[in-house]
Write a protein that binds this DNA or RNA. Structure first.
Lengths: 277, 277
DNA sequence: TGAATAGTGTCTGTGAGACAATATTAT
DNA sequence: ATAATATTGTCTCACAGACACTATTCA
C-alpha cells in the first residue's frame, strides 16, 4: 500500500499490526517515621519507612506489594503514579521521579507485564486522610554489604525480611544487577524494585534537595540530620553535615525548646535556583 | 468468581481485561569519530557522534530517528535494544544502560506507544560490517547553555540542528525537564531522548568506566583525554585528567611513535573491581 | 631547529573527616 | 549538677585547578 502523505498514512494505520502488552506503574513511597522517645531529653528515634499494600486477590494473594496499577491508554506512567499516590496517601504535588522500567518476561505470572516505577519521598505527617485499609507503613531496617542487601520490614503487627543480591556491572560504579535471594512476603519482583529505589534515593540525597519533600516547613538541623542518617544508614558528623546543607537551608528567628538541652534554631528550606552549574 | 489457589486463578485469567499498548525500545549509540588531521604533528580531531536511521516509511517519512523497534511479547526491552544494536552495527556484548522510559500520550501520531530507551557507547572502529543503507553516523556539535541545548548534526552530506529547552525541576540539581524548541529533521520526541542521553552520558563519564567501551585495547592518555573532552564539550587540564584516570588504566611497555613529537606510552584499561565503596 | 604533544612538579585553595570545646536547657 | 543536644572552631589530609617546566620526536 502506498501513501502520499502523513495524513493519509495515519488514516489507514492499523494499530493491531504489532503485539501489545500491559504496562503498570508502581510507586515507591518512602518516608521517615517517628519512633519512640526514650526519655524526655533524647530526640525521637526515626525509622526509614515505605508504604506497602496487601494483595487481597490473586496473584500473590495475601502478600505485600508496592502501590501500583495498570496504566490507561490515555494516561502517562507518571500520571498513573500520581493517581496511585493520591489514592493511597491523598498527597498531591509531590516530586515523583521515574526510577526504572522493570520488564523481565516472567515477572508477572499472569501475562507479560512491564512496569515503570516511580519514587516519592513524603512527609507522613502531611497525610491528612486515613490510609486505605489494605495499605500500611513498614519500617525498614536496611543492612547493606558488598554482595547483598538485607531489608527487614516491620509494621508493628507483621515482620519479614528479604535479601537481594547485588552484582556490580562491568564499567559501572553505580549500577548493580539485583537478584532475589530470599523473599517470602513480597509480591512480584518488588524486592528488586525496592532495593533499586533505596539505592537511588541514597544517591539523590547527596546531590539534590528531595529531602525537603518530607520535611515540615520549619525544622531543626538535628532533625534534618536524623533523616539523612536514617536514609543513608550511617551516622554523620555534625560539623560536616552542617557544612553540606548550609547552602540549602535558611535560619529563622524561631527556636525549638522543650528538650532538656540547649534549644535549637528552626531552619527552613532555601531553594537554590540561582547559580546552577 | 472465587479461586482456591494461585494455579486455579492463573488457569482462568483473562489477560484482555486491561487495555494493552505498544512498547518500543530505542537505542542511542554514541561514539567518538576520528576527524581530519591538520598536519603530521597534530592529533586527529575527534567528534562526538551518534548513529541515526533514515525513515523510509510513514510516519515521519524521510526524517532521521534513533534505531529502535517494537518489542516482542517474549522479549525484554533490553534484548530488543541488543537486537537493534546488533542489526545496525553488528556489535555484541556491549554495555547497554537503560536511559529512560518516554511515554507522553501523543509522542507517536499512530497510536499510544511508550518507548524505553537504552544507551551504548561503542568504538566505531570495531564495527566490522557495513552499516545498513539507511543508517548513518552523525557528528554532533553540542552547545549547552543554562536554558537550552543546541545540537548540530552533520553526516557529511546532510546537516541540521535541533534546539531543546531545559527546565530545572524543583528539588533537583540533575534532572531537567526537556522540551523541543526547534526540530525539523528528527522523528518523534527523539530530540529529547538524545538530549537526555547526552546529559546522562556526561554524568556517567565522571563516575563509571564506560569510556573504555569505546577505546581500543591499547590507547594513549592523550587519546583518552580527547574522548573525554569531546563528550564533555570542554577542555581538561592534563595533570588533572591524568590524576583522575590514573586508577583506571595500566601502563604498558608499548609506545606510540610517528607524530612529530615525544612518543606516548600506551595504556590499557584496568578493571577496578576490588575496593568498592 | 621548531612545532607539537607527552609527561611531571608544585603551589594554592577548597572542602571533608575528625575531634575538641563551648552553649544552653529541663529536670 | 547532670544528661543531652546544639553549635562552632580548628587541625589535617586529600585533592582539584592552575601554571610552569622538562622530555622527545620527526619533517
Amino acid at each position: 500500500m502506498e501513501y502520499n502523505s502523513e495524513e493519509e498514512f495515519l488514516r489507514n494505520y492499523d494499530s493491531s499490526c504489532f503485539e501489545k502488552l500491559s504496562v503498570t506503574s508502581d510507586v515507591l513511597i518512602f518516608s521517615v517515621a517517628d519512633g519512640v522517645q526514650e526519655n524526655y531529653r533524647k530526640l525521637n528515634e526515626k525509622h526509614f519507612a515505605i508504604l506497602l499494600v496487601k494483595r487481597y486477590d490473586y496473584p500473590f494473594k495475601d502478600k505485600w506489594c508496592l502501590p501500583g496499577g495498570f496504566i490507561r491508554i490515555d494516561e502517562t506512567t507518571s500520571s498513573a503514579a500520581k493517581r496511585v499516590l493520591k489514592d493511597e496517601t491523598n498527597l498531591e504535588d509531590i516530586y515523583l521521579e521515574q526510577l526504572y522500567t522493570f520488564d523481565e518476561v516472567n515477572r508477572d505470572p499472569r501475562m507479560r507485564i512491564i512496569s515503570t516505577s516511580y519514587m516519592a519521598l513524603v512527609d507522613k505527617n502531611k497525610l491528612h486522610n486515613k490510609l486505605s485499609d489494605n495499605a500500611s507503613w513498614f519500617n525498614m531496617n536496611v543492612i547493606e554489604s558488598d554482595e547483598s542487601i538485607n531489608i527487614v520490614f516491620d509494621n508493628g503487627n507483621e515482620s519479614f525480611s528479604v535479601v537481594v543480591g547485588k552484582t556490580l556491572r562491568e564499567f559501572t560504579t553505580d549500577r548493580y544487577e539485583y537478584s532475589v535471594i530470599k523473599n517470602d512476603s513480597l509480591a512480584f519482583d518488588h524486592p528488586i524494585v525496592i532495593a533499586s529505589g533505596i539505592s537511588r534515593l541514597k544517591n539523590k540525597l547527596e546531590y539534590t534537595d528531595i529531602v525537603f519533600n518530607m520535611m515540615p516547613e520549619y525544622f531543626t538541623l538535628g532533625e534534618l540530620q536524623q533523616v539523612y542518617e536514617v536514609i543513608l544508614g550511617k551516622e554523620l558528623l555534625d560539623p560536616a553535615f552542617r557544612r553540606i546543607i548550609a547552602s540549602k537551608v535558611e535560619k529563622t528567628n524561631k527556636v525549638k525548646t522543650g528538650g532538656g538541652h540547649r534549644p535549637s534554631v528552626l531552619f527552613k528550606y532555601k531553594s537554590n535556583n540561582k547559580k546552577k552549574l
